[in-house]
Amino acid sequence: MTITLVLVIAMAVLFSCGVYLLLERSLTRMLLGFLLLGNSLNLLLLIMSGAAGKPPIGGSSEGITDPLPQAFALTAIVITFAVSAFLLALIHRSWKLSRADEVEVDEADAAIGRDREDDPADDDPEIDTDPEAAQNEEATR
C-alpha cells in the first residue's frame, strides 16, 4: 500500500466516525465528531495537494510545492478551533443550566413535523388543494 492510499483510508475512517458522532444526541459526542470532521478535512487537503516538492521560496521554480493547500489547511485549523471553542462554551452552558448534555426532543417541533407529513400540500406549493378549481382548470383545457 502506498502512503496516499493509507491517508485516504485514514481520512475516510475519520470522516465516517465524525459523521456518526455528529448524529448522536450528546453534545460532547457532537463536539468530538466535529473535531474528527475537521481533522479529516485537513487530511483531504493534504492528499489533494499532491506529492511533496521543493519549498516555494527559494532558487528555481521547478518542482515547487503549491502553497495554496497549506494555506487552506491553516484556515481550516483556525475555523475548526473557533467553532469547537464555541461548541464547548455551549456545552458548558447547557451543563450549568440543566446538568445534562443531551439534546432533548422539542414536542412542538415534532408536532409540526407530524402535521407536514400528513399534508403534502405544505411541501409543494404547486399542489392545489381545492378539487373544484382543479376540475375547472381541466375543463378549460
Rank of each mutant, 00 (worst) to 15 (best):
D101S: 05
S49E: 12
L31K: 02
I9H: 06
V6E: 02
S84W: 00
G113K: 02
L27K: 04
F15H: 11
R25D: 01
E104P: 05
P67D: 14
L22T: 01
V103F: 06
E62D: 12
E24T: 05
F34N: 07
I64W: 15
S94Y: 08
D119H: 01
L5Q: 13
R114H: 15
A110R: 06
G38P: 02
A73T: 11
L31F: 03
V78F: 12
G58M: 09
L32H: 05
E107R: 05
L74F: 14
E138W: 10
I57P: 00
H92G: 15
G50Y: 01
T140H: 14
D109P: 04
A71E: 13
L90H: 11
A85G: 12
A12C: 10
Q135S: 05
A89Q: 12
I112L: 09
R141F: 12
V8W: 09
A12R: 03
D119C: 01
D130K: 04
C17T: 07
T2S: 09
D115P: 06
G18Q: 01
L5S: 12
R141T: 14
L5C: 12
A10D: 11
L44W: 01
A71N: 08
D130R: 04
V103W: 03
F34V: 03
I91C: 14
P69E: 15
L35A: 08
P125H: 14
N42T: 13
N39T: 11
D66L: 01
T4H: 00
V13H: 08
M30R: 08
V19S: 05
A51G: 11
S94Q: 15
L43K: 00
T28H: 04
L44I: 02
G63L: 10
L88N: 01
D123V: 04
G58T: 07
P55T: 06
V8D: 11
I77R: 06
